[in-house]
């Protein structure tokens, strides 16, 4: 499945996430959600499902919805089940001749709502095989409640629940590999992507996910200027560094076949990604060199494994 990507045409499509929402200035989530929804064909309708999150409280604050499509938010931990219910209703009503046209079902949830509290609901929905896309916008912590660690928070990152003190030095644990967990569900399409460059990767992965029948999953890196502690204007650069250091590799797994969707021209050292972000500042203090070494070793190991899997 592929589509000829043309940025100029794409940006001329009517927006599906409007301005006037209340995400922070420079929030990655707004960019990710607009980017994914842009992949919908113009004539197709969608129902957007949302877990409780920054995105939810900002994009549907009564009476202001920022969605051009139907939208439902129910709770934090159940967005995949909520989407299952909408999809089930669609099947039932379609069968009974009570609904017309094509409707697509797209869920957005943060890493807290996906990696952690919503994982059971997500796993269930994927296993049952609903025709839906689940998009995790991964900003690597519970940002809605004010930057608490999640299982998506990378090691050593400072959050309000993994503070840097005289003994504690940020998060002690690894980042859960959620994308792999989703691959293990043997669903038709899984991809890890991010908004970079001309958005071709995000757009193509989103298009594939939306127009592949069955349950599909996108994990999208979505920087949070506040939580990651960098100047909001540098978002594009931060994402590019995540990708070029291989901290956040871009790949897709279609019907079990792994494919690398982006190979950095030159693999940059992890410090290039860490240095601009306040959440990693303590890693650069004297005596903490081991943290950077560990971070680099971990990224290298995962990258090598991905290269093996993708046959690249």
């Amino acid at each position: 499945m592929s589509t000829v990507y043309n940025l100029k045409q794409e940006v001329e499509k009517p927006e599906r996430l409007t301005g006037g929402h209340r995400l922070c200035a420079g929030c990655g989530a707004g960019i990710v959600v607009s980017g994914v929804l842009r992949a919908l064909d113009k004539e197709d309708r969608a129902v957007v499902v949302n877990a409780t999150s920054c995105l939810e409280v900002s994009t549907f604050m009564y009476p202001y919805t920022a969605y051009m499509d139907s939208y439902i938010h129910s709770a934090f931990e159940n967005s995949a089940a909520t989407c299952s219910g909408v999809e089930a209703a669609y099947n039932a009503l379609k069968r009974r001749g009570k609904v017309e046209g094509t409707v697509k079902f797209i869920t957005f949830a943060g890493d807290g709502g996906t990696y952690d509290i919503g994982l059971q609901s997500l796993s269930g929905a994927m296993e049952r095989g609903h025709d839906m896309v689940y998009v995790c916008y991964d900003n690597e912590a519970y940002m809605n409640t004010g930057i608490q660690r999640s299982s998506a928070t990378p090691p050593f990152a400072r959050t309000t629940t993994t503070p840097v003190g005289s003994v504690g030095q940020g998060k002690k644990q690894n980042k859960k590999d959620l994308t792999e967990i989703l691959v293990a569900h043997h669903i038709p399409y899984v991809a890890q992507t991010a908004p970079i460059g001309n958005f071709k990767d995000l757009h193509t992965r989103a298009y594939n996910a939306i127009y592949t029948e069955g349950p599909c999953f996108l994990n999208v890196l979505s920087p949070c200027p506040r939580g990651w502690d960098y100047p909001a204007a540098r978002l594009a650069e931060i994402i590019k560094l995540a990708v070029d250091t291989c901290v956040w590799p871009l790949f897709e797994v279609e019907e079990g076949v792994w494919r690398l969707s982006y190979t950095p021209k030159k693999k940059l050292p992890v410090v290039d990604f860490l240095r601009p972000q306040g959440r990693f500042r303590h890693m650069f203090q004297k005596g903490n060199e081991w943290m950077i070494e560990e971070a680099q070793a971990s990224v290298d190991q995962k990258w090598e494994r991905l290269l093996e899997r993708t046959g690249a």
Binding site: L7, K8, E10, V11, E15, L17, T18, G19, G20, H21, L23, A25, G26, C27, G28, A29, G30, I31, S34, G35, R38, P195, G197, N198, F199, L235, A236
Partner: peptide, 11 residues
């Protein structure tokens, strides 16, 4: 070139 457009969080 339109590179700015999709990067605008606020459309």
């Amino acid at each position: 070139c339109m590179l700015c457009v999709p990067f605008c969080p606020d459309n």
